[in-house]
Every structure is written in structure tokens, then in C-alpha cells.
Design a protein around this nucleic acid. Sequence first.
RNA 1: GCCGAGGUGGCGGAACGGUAGACGCGGCGGCCUCAAAAGCCGCUGUCCGCAAGGGCGUGCGGGUUCGAAUCCCGCCCUCGGCACCA
Length: 817
Amino acid sequence: MANEDKDGYVPSAVEEKWQRLWEERGVNAFTREELENAEDPFYNLMMFPYPSAEGLHVGNIYAFTGADVHGRYHRLRGRTVFEPIGFDAFGIHSENFALKIGSHPMDLIPSNVRNFTRQLRRIGGMFDWNHSVDTTDPTYYRWTQWLFLQLFNAGLAERKEAPVNWCPSCMTVLANEQVIAGECERCSTAVEQRRIAQWFFTITRYAQRLLDNLEHLDWSETTRKAQSNWIGRSTGAQLRFPVVDRDGNATGAEVEVYTTRPDTVFGATYIVLSPEHPLVDKVTNKGMLAPVQAYVDMATRKDLVARQKADRKKTGVSTGGFCRNPATGQLIPIWIADYVLMEYGTGAIMAVPGHDTRDFEFAQAFDLPVVRVVAGPDADADTPLEEAYTGPGRLVNSGEFDGVDVSESVEKVTAWAAENGWGDAKINFRLHDWCISRQRYWGPPIPVVYCDTCGPVGVPEADLPVVLPRVEDFKPDDSGISPLARVEEWYRTTCPNCGAEARRETDVSDTFLDSGWYFIRYPSTDFDDRPFDSAITKKWLPVNTYIGGNEHAVLHLLYSRFLTMVLKDLGHLDFEEPYNVFRAHGLIIADGAKMSKSKGNVIVPDPIIEEFGADTFRTYLMFLGPFEEGGDYRPQGIQGPYGFLHRLWDTVVSAKTGGPDPDVERKVHQTIRQVTEQIPALGYNTAIAAMMECLNVIRAGGREAVRAEVEPLVVMIAPFAPHMAEELWERLGHAGSIFDGANWPEFDEAKAVESSVQVAVQVNGKLRATITVAKDAPEDVVVGAAREEENVIRHLEGLQERRVIHVPGRLVNFVVG
RNA sequence: GCCGAGGUGGCGGAACGGUAGACGCGGCGGCCUCAAAAGCCGCUGUCCGCAAGGGCGUGCGGGUUCGAAUCCCGCCCUCGGCACCA
């Protein structure tokens, strides 16, 4: 669109110009030498996107813009800011989409990446395109495989057959983290159990350290809490119950149980084994073999949805076998039930129906005895139990421990069990080992070779990458093995150890392994002979600020912490926490719901950027609400920031020379203070509001601005509207990019102070007048002035004055009665 | 059930325990225009009142305080996460 007025603001022209100049001048790109020699480095990281075929959505742009504002702010303050972006392009998403449209991920991903790159440039992110990564590029996943080998060689990668979550629709194993309430997180299909040999990273060995470090991290509270819950530390005891024959004689076997309430052991009236428990066969009475077998078959086949429904009726079967309760000496029956999970604790529990709601339900269903061993304030040893009692109280029916308060009973009973050799204190974690095997095509092959004589052998580093071959038939099938297992010429190889015929691992690794270390790679992409350069890594890592979605609170953020710790322990890194600061951004809501295709409330960004420009769109998104809380997207709302940027432009291009008006200058400095405080704290919405207010003062009554009044505003708006700020900066006569050099305005307290203040006058806490007094007027002057207000006089009339409260610069409150 | 974040005008949202509703959207009125758009100016929580002014107002019920959206106690509701974890 032609604009006859050369001084008019035409966003598309300005944005096209500056995107081109940034590119040509390398304003945002680093050379290797620049990275090596950077002064005051600031690593500004945002979660890299999965390059979907649909392109960037508003949620992506919101997150990237918020992170970009942060980076640009620090750059304007003089830091050397490295702000890379890349593509997390392996995984089921891409593979399924390719299958759906009959394409191949190797064709699809590059075109998606091109589209994303175009969009990311268009929104004006300060990205260093010299240091991008694409996880599907062999020059990247070569080092993902290297990373696997580090863990493999350190004994942190274990191959074990395990019951795994199997998605019958995606035809793959899912990590526990990818199972949402018993359903596949991608397709919501009910998940089943299968047993397959898998590679696991033993993250559980790091559970305590992962938990402990959380204390010191400057992270969003919600993220820390989510991670701590996920790790799920619990303290209790492991108790051993001897298995006895029908005459009560010890068989030598014992059932070990984990409990957080060892103090209730006197109330343990039966034992429950998980259906997968190794002792099931041993303890089952001959007469019960058939029903036990039937139950175990049913339970182990049953999908995890039904099995994990907490509100489901309890099922189970008696084994006919017995244990001796080591506390009471009584014989108690052994049952099998699927409410006990093999993956947690020991896979067996002592059931205390009197004081555990699940055990109570089970006891009701199967008519098992319920014994009270804790009495609350209104109960005694004989008070019947209508439901499980889990509150405070003292032990009863517990032998020598009768009367002991539950606050100290756990410790005492555990000590007693330990003295007598049937129990020990024990800490348990909810966290499971990380299954990284995927029986899929679209991922980095796990770099292992199986040799009949040598067993699993890691591929030598010199032979990396193990390149993923182009396979036209990559559709997974029900066999439970990877599509690569159908490509004989690929998997046939020789053992790197002994040279004998051998077979490659045909599983690929989890995408969370790709994304678990990408931030370490970014600064080192200039090196193709090492995963990361130690000097550059020392200079740039750990990350200064990481901004991303809280949906990754327990997956990506935990795995990348774990991998960083491992690399530290193996001597590759000298830090063990990857992100000094993490901030979770909020979600963009449209029509009362999170944007999603299924809800049909997705907003496509491209036409909005087309119409209003990237600067307006960015400013609007940041103006919606507090960045960490998200906001409600309303199409009309963009008019506000649109008009604001236009007025700012008009004001700046027509600004005169000369000294600033003192009142306006005061407002400008108050704004500098506010914006300088709020931007690093991610208070973007209020920072923008402050600038709008400031511009309203500058333009009040149609007055014309002078340069000194508007120049600070041009710099402060730059993180939000970088193109426009560059253009105005140039028009104000500056050479070079506004982002090169510490151009952030200095706040001057002396210029911000008001000479007079408005003081509220209250009578009994109710506002009755407002007076204007000199800033440092003494109390008697202020109170005197307040007392003379007509409306105040009326409200004081005939009443006894008891107190006068004076808050300087704020209010005067007459307390009367 | 557990953990976390919230609940303020018609709407998005502001408010160190100190003038609730900044800023913006929308709405109403006006200026400009042949007209419209854009732009500019003013008004806009609610009720009573011609006005001056007053009453009521931050999910609900109590409390602390000269003063509470803000702090404390007890509830209700919404959103996000976890969930038979012994």
C-alpha cells in the first residue's frame, strides 16, 4: 500500500526493511570468535518448537515473544545476549502426521522447518540463525548418540524386560510420563501392558539429588512443586513378614512390604501381593491355583486405564497362604489384588484396613478383619471403625506401644522392628527409571550392536552417527518391534569388539533425549568434531534465563537436569544444573478455553501480522495480561496497542528540539523507573501500560513533544516493537542498531520526584476530601489543611476527635467517635 | 483425594495494609467531514440526588486494624497438574 505521507507509519515497510538489515549486518548472529570472546554473556533460552505442518500458532508466538522481550531488554542494558532457536523435529508427532498424509518425514520436516523459519523471522525474534539446531540432522543426533554412549559406558543405561505402557493405536511403548490417566497423551487411546526388553536410564539413582537441588533453583514455584511431587519422596519402612505353612511353621520365605505407616503394623490383618509379584506362585495354596492363575492373567493383561481408576471397585483373590504378623504373632492371609502396583515399593503391602482407605474398601469387599490401632481424641481402643481413620491420635491395641502419639510412633515402631530384625527405615521415590526405547522409525537409532558372544556393545564413537536410513515403509505394526527391524541390510553388521556377525539395535530413542541437551549444543554448533566445546560452554552455560511452558515441568525439565548432572559427574561439564532461572509462561485463552483444533478456537497469526504488523502483534500479546499467567485473546483488543504505536510514531517523527518540559520529564523518569523494574520481572502488561500513560502525558492537550521526552520511550518500547524502534532510532539521527550498545535510559531519581502530592483525607477510614500539599510539608501543615476542608468539617462536627493518623504523602485519617 | 494458580466494572486487567478500578477494549456524546472511515476531545462501577454530596461495592461468612482486594480463620467456585504410590 502506497502512503503519500513519507512520515506515516507503515509497519510492513518498516519491518521488511529492518529484518533485511538485521540479516545483512548480522545484528543478531554470532561468529565462533564472537561467542568465544563475548563480554558479559547472557544466554537467553526458550523452549524450541516442534515444527508442525500447521506452522507457528499464537501460543508459540506468545512464548517466543515473551522470551525475546527478555533477551532484547538485557541486550539494551549492555549484555551480550545469545538467543538461539531450533527444531525438535523427531518423534511420533511428525511420524504420525507423515503417515496420515502419505508423506515421508524426511521430506516433510525440511519443508516444515523452512516454514517455521520464515515465520520466526517475520515476528522479529532476535534469533542467532548461525547457531540453530535440528534434532533430526545427523550432525546433531550423532551427539545425541554420543550422549547415550556416555550413559551406557557409565552403567547408567540398563536393558531390562519390563512391563511397559503400550499404546495399541500408536503401536509403541510410552514412558510413564506420556500416559495421562491411563491413556496415551497423544491419541487418548487406552494404554495396555506389555513386557518388552527396553533401554532405561537409571534416573532413580539421581532422585534425591534432583530433589535437593530444587531448593536452590530460581524457578517458577509451580514448576518446582510439580517436579518435587513427581519425584515423590516418601519416608517409611520396609517390613518383612515370614511366610508360614498351614500349621504355622516358617517356610523360609518372607514377604517384604513397604509402608509409610509402620506404626500401624499391629493392625495389619492381611498381606496383598501385586499380581506380578515373584512370590505369587510360592505362596499360593494348591487348591487356589486355578482362581489365582485366572486373576493374575486377567490383571496382567488388563489395560492400565481400568487398573488405575482409583474409584473402581476393588478386586482380588485369596492365595490360601499365610504370613505371620511379626508384631502380633498372628497368622494373616495373603491376598493378590491389582490395586497393589509392582512398580512401586516392593510390590507388596501389609494391609491395615483400620487406617488406610483402600485397604478398608478391600476388607469390606472380602470380609476381612478390621482392627483399630489408632484412636483419635473422641475414640478409644474399642470404638468401632465405620471408615478408615487416618487422623491424629495415639496407638491402641499395639502392645507395648499403647498410648504412644502418632507423631512419634513411626520412629519408635521402626526402631523396634529393626532391633528384632524384621524391618528397616526406608525412603521411596515415585520416580521411575526413564525408558528411552521407542519401537518406532522417526528417531535416532540407539547406538548399540548385539553380538552373540559379547552381548550388547556400544557403537564406537568414531563410527557415529549411526544414520537413520531412509525407509519407505516406516509404518509400525503390532509386532512390537521397530520398523528398522524389517531392514535387514541396515541392521546386519559386525561386532565392534570381536568382528563376528552381529545385529544393530533397531529401536530408536525417545525425543526427550534429543531435547534433553540441545541447549548445550547451541553455542557449539560451529564444532563438528565434538558435542560441545569446553571453552565456549564454560563461557555461556548454564543458561541465564529459560522460558517455556509448564507442560514440560516434569518431563523435559527433569530429564535435562538429570543429563546435565550425569555429564558433570563424567567430567564433561563443570555445573550440574542447566538453568539458573526458569519461568513458566501462561496460556493464551480464547473463548474461555485453551486454543486447540478440537475446540475450534485456534487463531491463525499470519493474517493478523499481515494487517497490523509484527510489532503491534507482539505488543498486543504482551499487553494481554501478566506473562506468567497468560491472557484472554480478543480480536478487538489489538486496536489499543495499534493506536499506541501509531501515536508514538507520529509523536517521535514530529518531535522538536529543545529542553524537556519539567512536568513531562518527571513523568518520563517515573516511567523509566517503572519499566526498568517491570520488564525483567516479566511484568510486561504493566510496563506497556506505563508507557501508554507516559505518551498520554507527552501528548496531553495536543502538545508537541521534544526529542528528549520521546527518545527514552523509543528505547523502552524496543523490546516489544523492535522494528519500529530501530526505524525511529535511525530517524532520531543515530547510526547503527539500537540494540548495539547499552542504550537503555538512565533513571534519575531527582528528575522523578513530585514537588507536590495529593493526600486523601478520611474520617473514620472513609474518604471525605483530597488535598494537594507540598511533598515535604510538615505534619501539622497537612493535618491543618485537611481540617479546613468543608466536607471534612461537616463530618467532624459535634464528634469527639480521638486520633489523627498521618501517612506522609498518602493520607490523613481522623478517628472520631 | 492431593498439589499449584486464580475469583476485582459490560470485557482483558491495575492497585508497598493507605484515594479500588491504572492502562486498554467496548459503549455513549462531541469536533472534523457533503458523508463515511481514520483521527482528535469528553464521559463511562452501581444506586439515591437538580446539585453539593451520600449509600453500596473486589466469590461467601467471620476476625485483626484508625484503615483490608491485600493479613488471619472457615467455606464456595474456576482453571492447570498429579492421582489405588501403600
